[in-house]
Each structure stands twice: as C-alpha cells, then as structure tokens.
C-alpha cells in the first residue's frame, strides 16, 4: 500500500483538516478528555496524518516513556493499515521524533531551549508539534500565549495539545470548553472533546476554525481501536 492511498483512507480526512502545509493557516488545537479516555490515540492519529504527508512531527510526551509512545504509533498504524505491511515504514518513521520529559522536568522555557537546539543545529526541524500531558493548571494565559508566539516563530504549521478535564470541575467557557482550559480557549483554533456515551465514544467538535466542520458535530470513535470513524 502506498502512502497516498493510506492517507486518503485516513479517517482524519473526515475532519477536513489541511495539514499538508500548502496553506498559510497555522493552527493550535486541543484534545480534551477525562483521564484514561485515549487522548494520546487521537493525537497520534493527527501526527500520523502529518507524517504520511511528508511533514516532520515532534511528539513531546510529558510523563510517558519513548517506548510507550512509540508503541502508540505502531498500534495505530497497524490499525489504519489493517495489518497490511507498509512498504516505506522506515521512511515514514523518519518523520517522527519523540521527546519525553518527566513531569517535574518540563517547563515552557526548557522546551523552548530544546527546540531551539534542534532547529539551530538543523538536527530536526519539525512541521507539526504534539504536546501530550501539558499541565494547564500550572500555566496561565500569559505563559501559554507566549508559548504560542514562540511556536509560531519556529514555523510550526500545526500544534496539538492534550488536556485532562475532571468530572467534578464543571467550569466552562462561553464556547463550551471545559476547565482547566476554559480561560485559554481563545488561543486555540480547534478544540475537540472525547466523550464516553452509553455504548460508544464520541469526538465532539467544540470549535474548529481551521477545518470544514461546524461546531457541535459529533464524530464517532471506534471504541476498540480509537480510530476516528468516517462520517
């Protein structure tokens, strides 16, 4: 199976997200869910989509190991291809670098230093950035706005964060973005929420400025693979 065929098959096309970098839109997105619902699986699907289109992904994982993160990619890729062997997996995997931090050793400043290093030495220049496990309770609006500015300055086309929401914290922004991100929601162009329902899991589009889908849409997730289903 070739990459094009696969990326066309990619259920993410359902979102109509343009990640091939041809457009000037640079967006920052957020996937939210309560603990343990599979945020990483969604982020990795976005990342794989980028990679298949030839973009370089930097996957930052705060609190998880490189091996574990890598296995998310392996698992989802094999779900996507339904076990069929991709000819150029090695070439695709060149488009990924994983950076893990222990919770206590991650800070915006530290990360900026690392990314500067990578870019300045031309070791790895990412197009897309995934930040899994960012602590929204510890970082205020100003810090995040500053961070966003920095990432734009590095030429990143797409940045996705994950955030953990809590059942008992019912605060929400006007647009419906739950705590702890209710006060920073205007920094994000795209916000998705994973929700368990009676018998399935859905991905609710709370806002999606850079995709063709209107807010309020619900996409279905395959509960066993966490793949986004085609609509």
């Amino acid at each position: 199976m070739g990459n094009e065929a696969l990326s066309a098959k990619n259920p993410l096309r359902a979102l109509g997200l343009e990640s091939d970098g041809t457009d000037e839109r640079r967006s920052m997105g957020l996937v939210m869910a309560r603990a343990g619902l599979g945020k990483t699986a969604i982020l990795v699907q976005f990342a794989l989509d980028c990679m298949l289109l030839g973009n370089k992904v930097l996957h930052v994982s705060i609190g998880e190991s490189v091996d574990k993160t890598r296995s998310w990619y392996d698992d989802l890729l094999s779900c996507l291809t339904e076990g069929e062997k991709l000819k150029d997996i090695p070439a695709i995997m060149k488009n990924r670098m994983i950076m893990t931090f222990k919770e206590s050793s991650f800070s915006n400043a530290m990360f900026e230093e690392r990314l500067n290093d990578l870019v300045a030495q031309d070791i790895y220049v990412p197009d897309c950035l995934i930040i899994d496990g960012y602590d929204f309770e510890e970082n205020d609006y100003a810090a995040l706005a500053e961070f966003k500015k920095f990432m734009k300055s590095k030429g990143l086309k797409m940045v996705w964060f994950s955030a953990v929401s809590h059942r008992e914290d019912t605060r929400k922004s006007a647009e419906g973005v739950p705590a702890p991100c209710h006060e920073v929601d205007d920094l994000f162009e795209n916000v998705l929420l994973i929700k368990p329902t009676e018998d399935s899991i859905t991905l609710d589009i709370i806002k999606c400025d850079s995709c063709g889908i209107s807010p309020g849409t619900q996409l279905k997730l395959d509960p066993s693979t966490m793949l986004i289903q085609k609509v």
Binding site: S65, V66, T69, R70, K94, M97, I98, M99, T100, F101, K102, S104, S105, F106, M110, R114, D117, L118, Q121, D122, I123, Y124
Partner: peptide
C-alpha cells in the same frame, strides 16, 4: 550536553528517535 550529543549523532548520519529527559 543534550544539544551537543544530538549534534554529534546527527553528524554521523544518525536518526534521532527520541530523547528522555529526567531531571
């Protein structure tokens, strides 16, 4: 030394797979 180490691997046609930062 992380930057220097990655630079040295990069110079050797290395592909950086990941970094693990702990303290």
């Amino acid at each position: 030394f992380q930057g220097a180490v990655m630079g040295s691997l990069n110079q050797r046609r290395g592909m950086i797979i990941g970094t693990m930062e702990e303290g």
